[in-house]
Design a protein around this nucleic acid. Structure first.
Lengths: 257, 257
DNA sequence: ACCGCTTTGTGCACGTGTTCACAAAGGGTC
DNA sequence: GACCCTTTGTGAACACGTGCACAAAGCGGT
């Protein structure tokens, strides 16, 4: 039910001349792959994982500014709004080129365009969601999918009684059709919202069909080949991390008394 | 599921010896004293954030092993199952004490207990979920809440038409009652599953009532005082990170041809 | 009691990410 | 154009997390 209204720029492609091919290359990402990434950083000018993780935040904040009619921001303002330090922000942005005017700041629309480019949001990605439980339901209705180049082409579930149902305008199809759907729509991103017991199996099938990016909501460590990126979203892990800090704060408070 | 009660599960008597004989190994950080009551250990917790983020994973894997009747694991096995390197795992575990037997490995039950204790899961946490949309619905039904010391004491929504409804055995109450509920149940963790526009406001109210840990699902950067911990789960950020890597892989493939 | 095998715990080196501080660069003004 | 003011971009120091390699420690067999 998260209402997200992120309107994808639509800014013109002017000044595209300043876009030089950024040769991106990085070692494996923070997925839960069995083999931890190691040595090779074949070409330099790779944008670090930490930076990539922050770019979407900057993008969102910038979008808000653009909607508010703000044309220019300084690193100070942008950093403040994004919740990071100004120096870090400038260094992050510097990794994707020298877009910005000294003494002035950054042009909002232009920066939106550049970040979108670097993140690959100027392209289109087909997404399939596997598992139509409460969570799958919520994900299907999530506005974030519809925007910025992501399109949910299918919902898939193993429960035959759910097949045919329509959720958020998308028809539910049976798991057996997974392979067909992926090939048909050239799905590149798979979202796993199944019970833990089914996750690895589903993941294997996705990977077997050529899906190279997986977003995993199931509480398991997925085993995938090297070239596949897995990102996991795990509620109970987040809770446990909060619990740790909660305890730490309680102990400190206790010690003070 | 996991019984992390501070009781001895005595399959072997030697464990009790070690339990009491826990030696202080880390510089300055006295591991817990023999009593599990966690006394005045005002000593700084030398556990790094990165390690804390991995402990829940280890805990989950260990739980699986315990259910499978496995009594002992080596760092090799555990690391494999958790998707990390063996050295990293050993270093992580070493930060919470020297629990493990050279030449043998770690006692599964005992390690479960220790990790649970360090994470603060031996205590009880009351949780309130704000926002009963699709996502709030899914969260309420999420089994991860029910286990390991987390209890959802209330669902809250601004929409009066939803009030009174019962979801996953929990009654939905109106946002106006938020302050009452928090005080009444001593809520320490707040989950924000509202639209982005309401998130900061809800957060302020939570913090105002003394909540010091927030799990935020709304796509906004929350502004909170120093002592409050916020963790955010953001679907569209995850997608955009995947998009980046997807593009990277496409570029590499293209360059190869 | 000794020996050899296995596995932990950790010092050290390395790579990555963050912060600081400042020179270079642009715009505005006269 | 010369001057001043603002803000970027970045080198260099620093902090932190990771991986390697090995000595210390336990166990079982003889």
């Amino acid at each position: 039910m998260v209402d997200y209204s992120p309107l994808f720029l639509g800014s013109s492609e002017r000044r595209a001349d300043r876009w030089l091919g950024v040769s991106v290359s990085m070692a494996g990402s923070g997925g839960a792959s069995a083999s931890d990434a190691m040595p090779r950083q074949s070409r330099r000018n790779g944008i670090s994982e930490a930076t990539v993780a922050r770019l979407p935040v900057y993008l969102r904040v910038l979008t808000g500014f653009a909607e508010g009619g703000i044309a220019t921001v300084s690193s100070e303002q942008l950093a403040q709004a994004a919740g990071v330090g100004p120096a870090k922000l400038r260094k992050d942005l510097s990794h994707l080129g020298s877009y910005g005017t000294r003494g002035v700041g950054y042009d909002v629309e232009y920066l939106i365009y550049q970040i979108s480019r670097v993140l690959g949001l100027t392209q289109h990605y087909s997404v399939v969601i596997v598992g139509v439980g409460n969570l799958g339901h919520a994900l299907a209705g999530y506005a974030g999918f519809g925007t910025r180049g992501f399109r949910v082409v299918a919902l898939v579930d193993a429960d035959a009684s759910r097949v045919g149902e329509t959720i958020a305008g998308i028809e539910v199809r049976h798991t057996d059709e997974l392979e067909t759907i992926i090939k048909e729509h050239e799905v590149s991103i798979g979202v796993i919202a199944t019970p833990a017991s089914a996750a690895q199996d589903v993941c294997d099938r996705l990977v077997g069909c050529g899906v190279t990016s997986v977003l995993n909501f199931a509480p398991v460590v997925l085993n995938v080949p090297e070239q596949v990126d897995v990102r996991k979203v795990d509620l109970s892990i987040e809770l446990q991390i909060l619990a740790f800090h909660e305890q730490r704060k309680a102990l400190v408070a206790q010690a003070r008394s």
